[in-house]
Design a protein around this nucleic acid. Sequence first.
DNA 1: TTTTTGATTGATTAATCAGTCAATATTAAT
DNA 2: ATTAATATTGACTGATTAATCAATCAAAAA
Lengths: 204, 204
Amino acid sequence: MPRDNNKNLEIRDARKTQILSAAAKVFARRGMVAAKVSDIAKEAKLSYGLVYHYFESKEQIFATLVKTATESSLEVVNEAKLYKGTPIQKLKWMTETILNNISSGDGIYLYLIMIQASTSDSVPDEVKEYLMGGNANSPVSATIPIIIEGQNKGEIIKEDPVKLAVAYYAFIQGLAINKIQWNECPIPEASILLNIFLNRGEVY
Amino acid sequence: MPRDNNKNLEIRDARKTQILSAAAKVFARRGMVAAKVSDIAKEAKLSYGLVYHYFESKEQIFATLVKTATESSLEVVNEAKLYKGTPIQKLKWMTETILNNISSGDGIYLYLIMIQASTSDSVPDEVKEYLMGGNANSPVSATIPIIIEGQNKGEIIKEDPVKLAVAYYAFIQGLAINKIQWNECPIPEASILLNIFLNRGEVY
DNA sequence: TTTTTGATTGATTAATCAGTCAATATTAAT
DNA sequence: ATTAATATTGACTGATTAATCAATCAAAAA
């Protein structure tokens, strides 16, 4: 009899993550449509056919990545909520965590994939629905309570909290895009991002 | 004899802009690779073949759009430099102009195309070279002198001006992406963007 | 060693799409 | 009306690529 032990499970897991992380890189750089399955196979250093042994379609691989990305970006906000300190301090911790993620390692690919997923008409409906359906659980919505708390304490400027949250994540997305297009690009300190939340006197 | 007068020129011009503005929409929404020439023809309400009567290739259409986008975004910075007032007031005028462009009309498509052009590995080398070659004339470089002047006058925070300029444009890009993915999304006031340039007391 | 299970391969198939081209339509000057 | 010049059309071709599948390989139990 063959390896009916859990050896096969290990192999399956290893291959799946191998394929997913290669795919993240390829999708992020080329886009959902331009990414060829043969590119993914090459990047993962395994054969073309094996990709289809582990995933039903290119689309399914993309959908899996979007799900992972969405979940892990929500996780950061929820951790921030547990962080001890004032709302601004929570946002500071969160921003630093995210900026770290962007400047180092593979975290950036997932950001790019989320952006593609929501930006491009080319991504399949199933994937878009996942992003929209999770609207209530999106990072933006999850961040709004922190902002409101900060406004009540007078730490944060009295602006529409939705507008502030949207602006904040737009900023982050923009930085992620910048980073991938220009690897050496300077990433600003968290404090620069946090400035958008702060009150200030009349300057103009 | 046929219309050897300038009637033909008029037609050619009209068709070219018709194709270009349809293409901008399609490229922005689907990306350079996923955008089909048949989509462009449909959006422009003319036949498939006619697209090739006016342009050599899909790639050439994309390249033309990138060139237009780059030039017109530089134009805004250069106008801002002529604007009377302090550096912060120049930046304010520029930011308002850009945000206006993003929230209304077709200007946004050109932003998205520039982002794609610099972000995606799928765009042809000729186009990337145009973007890189113009590095010295990029909006970022053009904005840096305004920032430095503001720092000398004490209006702007003492941070690496390159870092500030990059952050500023990242923010703008992020907002443009947001806008296209979610048409009703709130666009922040210019003052929120300008906050990233300002000095602040110790808040944390 | 033999057998069984499933991991792995890449040639093949079917569909899609960029780009071509031969044919038609339109305009205006003669 | 005829003719010339060019605008316009969409069927067609060749190349590319997602997905399939028949065949091979590797491990481990008997």
